[in-house]
Amino acid sequence: MTPASWAKAPDHHDAAAVEANTREFLDSGLTPVRCHACATEVRVRKASELQTSVQWSADPASTCPEFAARVAAGELSARIDTCPKLRASIEDAVAAGRLAVPDA
């Protein structure tokens, strides 16, 4: 019996192709956005009006004063939703047309 072949699935035997496809998926549509308050730069993708993906290039607590203060107060960085000042900077980028929102 031969294994089934899926037309939409990548060839998982080609590790380089899988890595390239994964990298493209993770990086596609990301736009750099700089926080107006602290100048931290993140990469952002809007999938809809309500959904926002933020990719940090460094530990948020090492670059964002809001994250640093909350982590110093005992919160776990991974459980902090976002910085309100960064969120406002992202919203400004959307309003200015620098960050596209599909179907908006």
Rank of each mutant, 00 (worst) to 15 (best):
K46L: 01
A20D: 15
D81I: 08
K46T: 06
H36V: 04
R45L: 02
P32D: 12
V54N: 00
H36P: 00
A47Q: 13
V42T: 05
P65R: 14
I80K: 01
S5K: 12
S48E: 02
Q51W: 14
F25C: 01
S5Y: 08
C64H: 05
S62K: 15
A72C: 02
S48C: 04
Q55C: 09
S5F: 06
Q51Y: 11
D27T: 10
V71G: 03
V44H: 00
T52K: 01
S28L: 03
A69R: 15
L26N: 13
L30D: 01
A69T: 13
K8R: 15
I80M: 06
T22Y: 12
V71N: 04
L26H: 12
A72L: 05
A69H: 15
V44Y: 01
E19N: 12
C64Q: 07
P3M: 12
A39P: 03
W6L: 06
P10F: 00
E66D: 13
Q55N: 09
T40L: 11
A16M: 03
A73I: 03
P60S: 08
G29A: 02
T40M: 09
C64D: 06
P65S: 09
F67M: 06
R70L: 14
K46R: 15
D81N: 11
A16W: 07
P3H: 14
A7F: 10
D81W: 11
A47Y: 15
T63C: 12
W56T: 02
K8P: 00
Q55A: 13
S28A: 12
T31D: 13
S53P: 00
D27R: 11
S77F: 03
S77H: 10
E49G: 08
H36N: 14
G74Q: 08
E66M: 11
C64E: 01
L30W: 03
N21G: 14
D59P: 02
A73K: 12
C38M: 07
Q55M: 12
L30T: 02
R23E: 10
V18N: 10
A15T: 08
P3F: 08
A17H: 13
D14E: 09
Q55F: 14
P60I: 05
L30R: 02
C38G: 05
S28T: 12
A73F: 09
I80A: 04
A47C: 01
V71L: 03
T82L: 06
P65Q: 11
A17Y: 08
P60Y: 08
P3V: 09
N21D: 14
T52Y: 01
Q55K: 14
T31A: 01
L50P: 01
A37M: 08
V18P: 07
A73W: 13
P32F: 02
R23G: 00
A39V: 07
A20E: 15
K8M: 09
